[in-house]
């Protein structure tokens, strides 16, 4: 799926660009985007280091385990493949908590830490496990209950009530997250998303 989507974005883009006379803009955008991607990645180094450091303290002190134990009743049904005392559970909880609070800068590093822990459990290193797909779908559905940036923009535009959108945002977020969980659990059963035999052989070699 990702191969098709990726190829189509480029192919459709270049063909449409040729007809609309936007080929110059395409060149600029391709080069500019590549640079932006590197800037964004390297920009993560500092916050990654900060949150991975804090996470290590939380892990060694046993704090993560305590939190994970308390939220077992949510995490185990969502991620049945992950042992309930595995560090991945704690990292995923921390990531979701940061997302709910709207702390984007902390959420990404914590999410990447969770992905690393999930990768330890993954027998096929180049293929996403069910737990990874579920975790990703929850993240892409947005968990933010208080969108501070949007409220800021509304306040700056002289809204009579900048925070009036919080209620609707919470409802829409609950809908999108519920749909994400249901669709990821249904899709993982479809034959086309099964891990193919050749991949398994590749991994065992």
């Amino acid at each position: 799926m990702i191969n098709v989507v990726w190829f189509l974005m480029i192919a459709v883009g270049v063909i449409v660009g040729a007809f609309t006379g936007n080929l110059d803009a395409i060149t600029d955008s391709a080069i500019g985007s590549a640079r932006t991607a590197v800037d964004l990645s390297l920009g993560l180094i500092g916050t990654m280091a900060l949150w991975l450091g804090i996470m290590k303290i939380a892990e060694e002190s046993g704090l993560i385990k305590t939190i994970a134990k308390g939220l077992r009743f949510i995490m185990v049904p969502l991620f049945p493949e992950v042992p309930e005392d595995h560090p991945a559970m704690g990292a995923m909880i921390m990531n979701m908590a940061a997302n709910i609070l709207g702390l984007g800068n902390a959420a990404t590093p914590l999410g990447l830490k969770a992905m690393q822990e999930l990768q330890e459990l993954n027998p096929h290193k180049d293929t996403a496990s069910n737990a990874m797909c579920t975790f990703l779908a929850i993240n892409t559905s947005s968990l933010t209950l208080i969108p501070a940036t949007v409220i800021g923009i509304r306040a700056a535009a002289d809204s009579a009530n900048p925070t009036e959108i919080i209620g609707p945002v919470i409802v829409a977020t609950l809908v999108s997250t519920t749909v994400a969980i249901i669709s990821v659990k249904l899709l993982q059963k479809l034959p086309i998303f099964q891990i193919k035999l050749e991949n398994i052989e590749e991994a065992s070699n």
Binding site: M1, Q119, D126, A128, L136, S176, S183
Partner: peptide, 26 residues
């Protein structure tokens, strides 16, 4: 890209369709 890239996952299976369905629902 960021989450799967950080652990070099190339085969993303049903993650993208599920994410896009959730976006549409939101």
């Amino acid at each position: 890209a960021v989450y799967f890239g950080s652990v070099a996952i190339k085969k993303t299976r049903h993650a993208l369709p599920a994410g896009l369905i959730a976006d549409a629902a939101g």
